[in-house]
Design a protein around this nucleic acid. Structure first.
Lengths: 359, 359
DNA sequence: CTGAAAGCGCTTACAG
DNA sequence: CTGAAAGCGCTTACAG
């Protein structure tokens, strides 16, 4: 009785399995498996045998047990997704959502299910704690994702040969990733500003250190040098508050264009936008404004205008898709593939950059 | 070689299993299983033996294989989430997101991981195809979610005693669900309109049939009757297009308030809002407007105003949380619990309803 | 206190 | 053309 319970989930008849079909059709269980899976050998069986198996399966209402199928074949067909913040942030303006969309799309296309590791283990430890990270081994491989990452447990996985891919560039050597080419895209924004005639530019970035922020700054500096604009005083850090005085000073100094990074918090852009509105200014009339990295399809609206921000888009959705593909290649043991990939960012002309007002 | 491939994911060491731990710790695989699962007998082993097993497991980075665990007839602390549309819709205004947030929050709080079943199988069949639905058995239980649902495969799961919970009310008898009490909430909106003095009201709903739409209509009719407003001509269906003429006719007929349902497409509300704006009208000055069911925290802005819509909020996040809790109760085999639950919707005063202009 | 064995329902060489 | 057997990585009586 207890055994019946176990097998039926507590009620109903036991589900038919291949051996039941075999008995009814008078063949071996192997043959049933071969026929039902439609393998080459299964197809080459006597027509009459095949039909007997098919009929019996139909009559018994057979459906394969996916759990047994997965156990018997290679892999679980499950990819992990581990995020160091909540996977589904509460704030509406979270920037990670498009990545999840891409990951799910590609996983579906590849016949893979997704295990969302919630980060907090049964023990109640928080995200990033080693025991929590370790659980990702339940999947065939895992995607990691978040600006900051607990290095130790992940390094351990890597050493053990567990297939994993970061979404976002990483400095740690040997870690496979799919990131965005912020350096080139940021340099390009500076080049476009220079081409529009801007010579006095400021770059506003957040305090937070992360590879993506470092890359943007590097690109800004590179672009400034290339256009001969110079880099002294170019980079300014902010936590997003009290930008009014800073903005006023810039204008007094003859600054004609400001570049700002967009992160998951959006603090710098939000702060600057608010300051511009409070000052009664409008972009690009009074000041040109370029934004480094809004997610594709989620572009913000510029202060006082309603125009799309000039700058570039981060191909988040494509990053998610590409990360899934790379992870599958690693799981399959592909050789000689590039495990560290940067995707190009799409330039956005937008409406917040114009030629500087000649004073 | 090919075999090593399969097991190692292409590089490094293969995933450690219980027999590996057994070898290292010098005990049987059975003992490993007993210790790791923390069973009574496992706990009663020699302290030193236990420790050897635990140490070896830690050292090897062991994590149980969820598929094998499930096949051997045990739980794997994973809950499924199956959606019949894409889990992560592309359009920004998707209304399901808060549910996912709730599901993830509660799953994390309960120490459960989440498997996102991607719906489309390797065969390229679409969501809702039977083979795809069947895969949910890999989890201990599964949440289902979407306006329309393929009944057959789900009924099958139910018959087999597989624990499942719908998010959203279902008509099919026997299906456990956590839904929103649209009937009461909608009736309440009508009562509030009547209390504000409205006697000539229209209800605009979409063509699409779904339990949630049916419930809203039922509530509207009930509310109208209760307030003595009458129900003749009250309900009007739309696909969201060409509402200008309809709106004009209503005004000519002396309609002072319009109620509209909000669905995942948002077609009716969007169409009506556009028509109101084109007509140069403003709510609630020229017309009172109530919306049945915006998700909490994602309230739209009313046309021409900027005010929050009057109506009620759907507690999507709480629905997600409650569904997880119910599913866990079913998995644990709790007896005598209510398996069909409706959560109350929060009334929203909003700014789009006022007393009718006396013409 | 610990282990050998059977079993979950499949797939996949391997034999004949 | 078909079948006996081993194996996927676990759990769970059952023995000792």
């Amino acid at each position: 009785m207890d055994d019946v319970r176990r097998q039926t989930g507590g009620r109903g008849r036991r589900r038919p399995r291949q051996s039941d079909i075999a008995r009814v059709a008078g063949v071996s269980q192997t043959t049933v498996s071969l026929v039902l899976r439609g393998t080459d050998v299964g197809m080459s069986l006597a027509r009459e045998t095949r039909q007997r198996v098919l009929d019996a399966a139909e009559r018994l209402g057979y459906v394969p047990d996916p759990v047994a199928t997965r156990l018997a074949s290679a892999g679980n067909a499950m990819l992990g997704l581990y995020t160091f913040s909540a996977t589904f942030p509460t704030d509406v303006a979270h920037s990670y959502y498009p990545i999840l969309v891409g990951v799910e799309e590609e996983a579906a296309a590849q016949g893979q299910d997704l295990i969302l590791f919630t980060g907090s283990s049964r023990t109640g430890a928080g995200a990033g704690d080693p025991a929590s990270v370790r659980r990702v081994r339940a999947a065939d491989g895992c995607l990691f994702f978040g600006r900051h990452v607990p290095e130790e447990p992940v390094r351990r996985l890597l050493e053990d040969g567990f297939p994993l891919v970061y979404i976002g560039r990483r400095n740690e050597p040997g870690i496979p990733y799919v990131g965005a080419d912020y350096v080139s895209a940021s340099a390009d924004v500076l080049a476009r500003l220079a081409a529009a005639g801007h010579e006095n530019i400021r770059y506003l970035r957040e305090e937070d250190e992360a590879p993506s922020s470092g890359d943007r700054e590097e690109g800004v500096l590179r672009g400034a040098r290339a256009s001969g604009a110079g880099t002294a005083g170019l980079v300014v850090r902010t936590d997003g508050t009290d930008l009014d005085a800073l903005l006023a000073a810039w204008l007094a100094e003859g600054v004609t264009a400001v570049v700002v990074e967009q992160t998951d918090t959006g603090a710098a852009l939000a702060g600057l936008g608010a300051a511009i509105e409070r000052a009664g200014l409008s972009c690009p009339r009074d000041l040109s404004l370029a934004v480094l990295g809004a997610p594709v399809g989620a572009r913000g609206r510029a202060p006082g205008g309603g125009a799309v921000f000039s700058g570039f888009d981060v191909p988040m959705r494509e990053m998610g898709r590409a990360a899934v593909r790379l992870l599958l290649q690693l799981i399959e043991g592909a050789d000689g593939i590039e495990t560290r990939r940067l995707l190009p960012c799409e330039p956005v002309g937008g409406g917040t950059v114009a030629a500087p007002r000649r004073g």
